[in-house]
Amino acid sequence: MHELSIMASLLDVAEEHARAAGAQKVLSIHVVVGERSSFVDDSLLFYFDALTPGRLAEGAKLVIRRTPMRFYCQTCERDYTPPMNSFRCPTCNTTGRLQDDGNACYLEHMEIET
């Protein structure tokens, strides 16, 4: 359900930037969505296809890049992506500092035809 709102919002943002860049057509839209966000690829693609007809992005391809949740382990001095059942470092079992909560949700770039 929430994928519908998010795709409607994406198209508004995309269209605004595409027009400003003088686009006749949007060929592809590249979004970054965190792995821990609740947005499901199939559902995002479904609503994207449902909402694009008649708009500048009609026929455009939606490309989704997933980014992981990341912590920094002070003991091991490196980043780690925690397993689903713990936030602890898989190597030393201490809890690191949160670097990225895995909930990214933004439009990165677009390919347009001018």
Partner: peptide, 18 residues
């Protein structure tokens, strides 16, 4: 008039309008 395919960098939250 020039025509072509361009890459436009946006980096904007999908929730920007909200």
């Amino acid at each position: 008039v020039m025509h072509g395919i361009r890459n436009v960098k946006v980096v904007k939250s999908l929730l920007a309008n909200n």
